[in-house]
Design a protein around this nucleic acid. Sequence first.
RNA 1: GUCCUCGUAGUUCAGUGGAUAGAACGCUUCCUUGCGGAGGAAGAGGUCGGAGGUUCAAAUCCUCCCGAGGACGCCA
Length: 538
Amino acid sequence: MLRKTVRRYTKKAIKELQKKGKLPGDIKLSGIKVETPTRAGQGDYSVTIAMQIASQTGRKPKTLAKIIRDELLENSAATKNFSDINVASPGFINFFISDKKARSLLWKIFSDEDFGKVNVGKDKKLNIEFGSINPTGQLHVGHARTFFYSDILANILEFAGYKVTREYYVNNARQSAQIKELGKTVLGNGTSYKGPYLEKKIKKYKKSIKRYKNYGPAGHFMAGKIQKDIETFLAKKAGVEFDKWFEEEELYKKGDVSATMRELKKKGLVYEKDGAIWLKTTKYGDKQDQVLVRSSGENTYFMTDIAYHRNKAKRNFDRLIDVWGADHHGHLRRMQAAMRIFNIKNIDILIAQFVRLKGGAKLSKRRGNIVTVEDLIDEVGLDAARYFFLTKSLDSQMEFDLNLAKQQSQKNPVYYIQYTHARTCSILKKATTDRDFKKTEITRKDLKAIEGEGEFKLINKLILFPEIIEDAARDWQAHRLATYLHELAQEFNQFYRDYRVIDKDGFVSKPRLALTIATGMVINKGLELLGIKAPKKM
RNA sequence: GUCCUCGUAGUUCAGUGGAUAGAACGCUUCCUUGCGGAGGAAGAGGUCGGAGGUUCAAAUCCUCCCGAGGACGCCA
């Protein structure tokens, strides 16, 4: 909660020193970095600026740190909030939050239902498109990663002040290759996407299928049924909801595809070769030019995807995020080229790296015996499944071991966090029912009784929550929240061991109950963002 | 071959250029006349793939090498 404050104080101190001539006026401050040390004795916040500017001034970092520290001590607001401002080798300036300030921060947390909410998004409109799986079969475990991670990232971005639209691009155009391929199988002339699931579907819609003669319409029909299954599954079982389902078909119906082609031609970036129509993506950083229209007359996926992204860009979002599966990796460069052509700059494409089964076999949707997301949820439960994917960074390949996941579901860290939440609730319940205590009886003054080291340690952990949200939202690293919640739970359990909230005689310690409630609130909010239940009883 | 991503404890993974590299699981001990023991304490376990370089400071940035996976199609 005080990171910005520390930055402000430091900046002010440096400016003062420059005014006084104690520091040269022309030093370059490339942002004052404020860190949160992990080790005891290194303070609650730490500033490294002295080491960064040392070479510019020709003085020792430690000497500079001392000069800055002395100036900081001149600031009465700083000395009020921080009981100590230290210099440590080789030039760290460490800030220690005063007990008084810590108590008042706890009061803020305790009385703020929305604690943790920040505004890095500044109400900007953000579109995050993810999933967008071809409606040709069930979702497999690899997809789960994209869905869960993106969904949670979207939650965090929303909490961090963005106006978020979650969008799903439905690849259902009749003229697209995969839909025709699906149609071929549906009409009994192919084997693509075939497996127990599709076979069952074909059986179920036997009568309707008879109406179709061509692959396109037949595929489109089946894709619609499969898409329905996907949507139902996501909403009902996976806890993933979208604000907008954007259909590829629309791009044709509304003329986006033809308009895009016209624009590209106007720019002189289109040419014909071997009967196909090509786009000069090499002029915009691609390794080779790409086909827009095949010699057969069919549009490529790339063609419609450009039209789709132009459509998104025109819908007045300040920021676009795409989350793609690793199988679309090769598509990245050409897409970036296309975005450059249309001067679309506010887009970022995240790639969710492959999920591999233990033993090395890649999960394949072309095979019948896939491990579906549904299998996973049935096996380990939704909470553990979501958490499983959230503890890993998106851009590192991960190994998926169903047996391990199953075995660990009973000792998964997610239960530890939930257990801790339940524990806070149980303590509160005991105080309110057995002792007839009311939460509203706790006043700001009561917090003065907080004295213990372990109590302050817990407060220090709690106050990091908004900063975690801020960092996760800024870098699109949702998994940091999972790590934080686990640490917070650990801190609380240590506090719980050392300090009694309700003592043997039934006396309720108001400040400790406030700490307990505040912890429960933060964990509850954190789990809500992760889309994981925060049970009061387990 | 070219281009991406990755290489951290036995295993699965964290680690915004900062201080003595962390967690979970597994392993070895220990703690309960306790507000939830689904807990807590202690310990073993690391040349952060290797070699150079940049920097006051490198697991983190750059180059090369080794290794793993992926993408390089008029598939998506």
